[in-house]
């Protein structure tokens, strides 16, 4: 049996007095597509930040890809993020003064060395071969999100995290982005964790968990 990509036991996170995440036991297998559903404030973003190494748990154990994240230093977490995780944001968060290809190269820069040819290929993979030199301001929402995906997968992460990746997109773009993610996953075999409040988006996954007020209330397996 393979080691699960994400394994938590009694994972909690509190901000001051507020408990954002009640003790949570979760396992995500390698290559699985997990959708996390819940209302805003239900703790789903908190879970994503913890799993992505952006934040530290208040209690419990959290291991991602076999690494115990609570044991890592601040810089160790950064190194974990750049080698292991690709993140897609709702607001894209592209650097406004860099072109599409340069935005992808920024990720390469922090990971190791920039390689423009490879960054171009990644953009071609997400279907943006014709918009390499455009800045984010000149791209549509769907295109920006595809740059974001190219940036997230450029370092061959084992885990792709999406924080409402389609939240700002119309229906057509949403389907395109999710289709793209599906294709990429089929090729690169990374694990996907998507946080969403959209049932339709969640339906693309293998499994959906429902969080409410920091508690896992329901789990639904769609396919295995």
């Amino acid at each position: 049996m393979t080691v699960p990509t994400i394994q938590t036991a009694g994972l909690t996170k509190g901000y001051g007095d507020i408990c954002a995440l009640k003790p949570l036991d979760l396992q995500v297998a390698e290559g699985e597509w997990l959708s996390v559903m819940g209302h805003s404030g239900s703790g789903k973003s908190t879970l994503m930040n913890l799993v992505g190494g952006l934040d530290r748990p208040s209690g419990g154990s959290l291991s991602v890809g076999g690494q115990d994240l609570s044991a890592l230093s601040e810089d160790g977490l950064a190194r974990f993020r750049r080698e292991f995780v690709g993140i897609i944001f709702q607001q894209h968060h592209l650097v406004p003064y860099l072109s599409a290809v340069e935005n992808v190269m920024l990720s390469q820069y922090f990971h190791s060395v920039p390689d423009e040819a490879e960054a171009r290929l990644a953009l071609e993979r997400v279907g943006l071969g014709h918009r390499l030199k455009n800045r984010p301001g000149e791209l549509s929402g769907g295109e920006q999100q595809r740059v974001c995906i190219a940036r997230a997968i450029i370092n061959s992460p084992k885990l792709l995290l999406g924080d409402e990746p389609t939240g700002n997109l119309d229906h057509k773009s949403t389907v395109m982005v999710l289709e793209l993610l599906k294709e990429l996953r089929a090729e690169d075999r990374f694990t996907v964790v998507l946080v969403t409040h959209n049932e339709e988006v969640a339906a693309w996954g293998d499994r959906t968990i429902y969080l409410d007020d920091g508690v896992l209330v329901r789990e639904e397996r769609l396919r295995s």
Binding site: E83, H111, S112, V113, I154, S156
Partner: peptide, 14 residues
């Protein structure tokens, strides 16, 4: 074949 791994090796060598 994998770009990330290739770059990582290069960066380490540098």
């Amino acid at each position: 074949r994998q770009g990330a791994q290739r770059r990582k090796l290069l960066a380490a060598a540098i």
